[in-house]
């Protein structure tokens, strides 16, 4: 079956899902289970009045900000803990603690201590994600090629050059894994912080439609959200990963 075009199967699978959904909606005939058409109409209406893009945009910005914050702090701490035994000993217990505190608790505490602010929302999401990044990057930093590190030291490479050209390329697969898991996690926690303490964003909208029992719009926002997440994966993460791995795939 190699070399055969697999796309028909994917298309068929999506069609089947829509078919099952439409059939279920027709049988249930209830506003709590709107069919694909009703959801499509709701999506178009929300897009037309601009609300969809406003809320999606705000959610996207919160995802981007907390992702950037979590990745930069997580990578720095991960390298520190992977390379220096003392740092690992000191920060280790904190890591275990933060890994096991439920996301909800962090979000609630951030709002209580920092107020219902944008900064609190983003900090809460980042704090939830940082421990995962640290764990991934630390395991990468522990398995750095010591031969290359010796080379860097013997040739008196600057700290910056060592980090940029010797350390980070070796950590790239670990950082990609962290970014990928991270994005999936951050999307979900962002909805949570929006639900609990913001007055806009996809999470806020979903919460509102839940209270209004407007399931068509709730699903419309959900699908828009899933589509954007998938687009980000295809348009951003995949090309970055290909670029980072081009030396692996280069052929003579």
């Amino acid at each position: 079956m190699k070399g055969m075009d697999r796309r028909p199967w994917t298309a068929l699978s999506i069609l089947a899902l829509l078919g099952i959904w439409a059939a279920a909606a027709a049988i249930a005939a209830s506003p709590t289970l709107p069919g694909p058409l009703a959801v499509g109409e709701a999506l178009v209406a929300e897009a037309a009045n601009g609300k969809l893009f406003y809320h999606l945009g705000l959610t996207l910005w919160r995802v981007a900000a907390s992702f950037a914050l979590a990745m930069s702090i997580g990578v720095a701490l991960g390298i520190l803990m992977g390379r220096f035994r003392t740092a690992d000993d000191i920060l280790g217990p904190w890591l275990v603690l933060t890994l096991n505190v439920p996301a909800l608790v962090v979000v609630v505490l951030a709002y209580v201590w920092l107020g219902l602010t944008e900064a609190a929302a983003i900090a809460a999401v980042a704090v939830n994600k940082i421990p995962n990044v640290v764990v991934q990057v630390r395991s990468g930093a522990r398995s750095l090629d010591e031969g290359l590190m010796d080379m860097a030291r013997a040739y008196r490479l600057s700290r910056y050059d060592t980090l940029r050209h010797v350390v980070l390329p070796q950590l790239a697969p670990y950082m990609m894994a962290a970014a990928r898991n991270g994005l999936a996690l951050i999307w979900k926690i962002v909805l949570l912080v929006e639900l609990l303490g913001r007055s806009n964003g996809v999470g806020f909208q979903i919460h509102m439609f839940f209270q209004l029992f407007d399931i068509a719009r709730l699903l419309a926002y959900t699908f828009a959200f899933v589509a954007v997440a998938q687009l980000l994966e295809l348009a951003l993460l995949a090309p970055v990963e290909r670029h980072a791995a081009r030396w692996r795939t280069a052929r003579p």
Partner: peptide, 11 residues
């Protein structure tokens, strides 16, 4: 100081 190691140790 320049070093040539047992392995090439190129990035």
């Amino acid at each position: 100081i320049a070093c040539v190691f047992q392995e090439p140790r190129l990035l």
